[in-house]
Amino acid sequence: MTAAALAFQQFSSPGDIDSPLRRALVECWVEVTNAGGAAGFPFPPVDVSTVTPSLDRLVDLLSPDTSRLLTATVNGELAGWLNVRRDCFELIAHWGTVHHVQTRTAVRGRGVGRALMQEVRRVARDEMGLEQLRLAARGGVGLEGFYGRLGWKEVGRWPGALRLAAGDDRDEALMILAPL
């Protein structure tokens, strides 16, 4: 992927998200989930009516200080997105949590996810003033290796925390990126 083809944009206010972007985010979330992605909906298939209320809640919470949505586009089309949040409570306001990391299936393996994670690191450090990032990743699907190659460290696990189906319990891997 050429640097010219890949672009990032961040959104920090509900009013920043127009209808076409909202539709693209929902479509991406549906696609990623139905392809087996660990993006917040454990029981595919999902559809637009399932995903839209969750996106609406996420967008409603956008704020420059506490929650930002970061998108990656390729040639002007949404290729992936994520959400980074911080808690205002003084004891933990120095770290943030990354949620809903996802890339469109058509661009997988082309470096979009890696670039998106590098950009969220920069945004968190340089613009939000965070010192570390955390995330929880579904075990058993290779995410620990993906994040590990980007400098994230696994710091713990919740064994069997996620029940995807009867007899299909997965660990949740707790990961940290520090310092930023």
Rank of each mutant, 00 (worst) to 15 (best):
A3D: 15
A4Y: 03
A5I: 04
L6P: 03
L6S: 07
L6E: 03
F8W: 02
F11P: 00
S12P: 00
S12Y: 03
S12A: 14
S13T: 01
D16W: 00
S19L: 10
S19H: 09
L21P: 02
R22M: 13
A24R: 14
A24Y: 04
L25W: 12
V26T: 12
E27K: 13
C28E: 07
E31N: 08
V32N: 08
A35F: 11
G37V: 09
A38P: 05
A39N: 15
A39G: 06
F41G: 11
P42Y: 09
F43I: 10
P44I: 14
P44Q: 08
P44F: 12
P45K: 11
D47P: 01
V48N: 04
S49Q: 13
T50I: 09
T52M: 11
S54Q: 14
S54Y: 09
S54P: 00
L55M: 04
L55E: 03
R57N: 07
V59C: 00
V59I: 10
D60Y: 00
L62V: 00
P64G: 02
P64S: 06
S67A: 07
R68T: 00
L69N: 00
A72S: 11
A72Y: 02
T73Y: 02
V74A: 05
V74F: 02
V74I: 15
G76K: 11
A79Y: 05
G80W: 10
G80F: 07
N83I: 01
D87G: 01
C88P: 10
L91G: 13
L91P: 03
H94Y: 12
G96H: 05
G96K: 04
G96I: 05
T97G: 00
V98P: 01
V98H: 01
H99L: 11
H100C: 09
V101C: 02
V101E: 03
R104Q: 14
V107E: 04
R108G: 08
G111I: 08
G113W: 01
R114F: 03
A115W: 01
M117D: 03
E119Y: 00
R121C: 06
V123R: 04
V123M: 08
V123H: 04
V123W: 02
A124C: 13
D126V: 07
D126S: 11
D126K: 08
A136L: 08
A137S: 13
R138Y: 04
G140K: 12
V141P: 03
V141I: 15
L143E: 04
G145K: 13
Y147S: 06
Y147N: 06
R149F: 03
R149E: 13
G151D: 08
W152M: 11
K153N: 12
V155E: 10
G156I: 11
R157C: 05
W158Q: 15
G160T: 12
A161D: 05
R163Y: 01
R163H: 10
L164Y: 07
A165H: 10
A166E: 15
A166H: 13
A166C: 06
D169Y: 06
D171F: 11
D171A: 08
A173E: 04
L174I: 12
M175R: 15
I176K: 12
I176P: 00
A178K: 12
P179F: 07
